[in-house]
């Protein structure tokens, strides 16, 4: 009888475990819906620094070198950096329908759009944070311009100050994010 119980418990765990893992990765934005834009783009950049690489990077950056120490501090605790960026020769190569799958995810539980973020970059920059209580679990930036589209997704504890410092590192493009004011507004489209 005990053996049956143990077997059933293991079976249950095997079934439930993948769901728990999936839950933990919820701050990862799925960007593959944008892949079709590559055929129209003059330049496409796709960066994937997953948790394994983040751990590796955190281990590799030296504490002795000042620059490396700074980067190490910034990436500690992060679980991934994902970037997809498209540049087009002409306007009108992408529209709201292309962005909808991304926006739909950002309308999901926990995501909050930061309305007080200022960017030096031309076009529209939307910044979203995912909160779990007071903790920030992830960040997403959606930058759209007439001829440009960039989605940045950082998974893990990150804030906008950190993002500003990470720009230009680890494949994150320069988004011109300026230090934010400490206000937030619940997600709205």
């Amino acid at each position: 009888m005990k053996s049956t119980f143990n077997t059933s418990l293991i079976t249950l765990l095997l079934i439930v475990a993948p769901a728990l893992v999936a839950k933990a990765q919820d701050t990862r934005i799925q960007m593959s819906s944008l892949d079709h834009l590559a055929a129209k783009a003059s330049q496409t950049v796709d960066v994937n620094v997953d948790e394994r690489l983040m751990k590796l990077a955190a281990r590799l950056f030296s504490d002795k070198d000042e620059d490396e120490r700074e980067v190490k501090k910034l990436i500690e605790g992060l679980k991934g950096i994902y970037v997809k960026s498209f540049e087009f020769e002409t306007e009108g190569q992408f529209g709201a329908a292309d962005l909808e799958p991304i926006r739909a995810q950002l309308r999901g539980a926990g995501w909050t759009r930061m309305v007080n973020v200022v960017s030096k970059k031309e076009g529209n920059v939307e910044v979203y944070l995912q909160f779990a209580g007071e903790m920030i679990n992830g960040l997403a930036v959606l930058h759209t311009d007439d001829k440009e589209l960039t989605v940045v997704n950082i998974v893990g504890p990150v804030n906008l100050d950190k993002l500003a410092e990470l720009e230009g590192q680890m494949g994150i493009p320069d988004l011109g994010i300026e230090s934010p004011k400490p206000k937030k507004k619940t997600n709205e489209q």
């Binding site: 590559a38 496409t44 960066v47 997953d50």
Partner: peptide, 26 residues
């Protein structure tokens, strides 16, 4: 592990960088 992939001008230029763990090196 795919690190970075860049495509330009309808695939006229493609760059792919992959990493693989090799003990204390990569």
């Amino acid at each position: 592990m795919p690190l970075i992939q860049t495509l330009s001008a309808a695939g006229e230029e493609q760059t792919y960088i992959f990493l693989r763990d090799a003990g204390d090196k990569t």
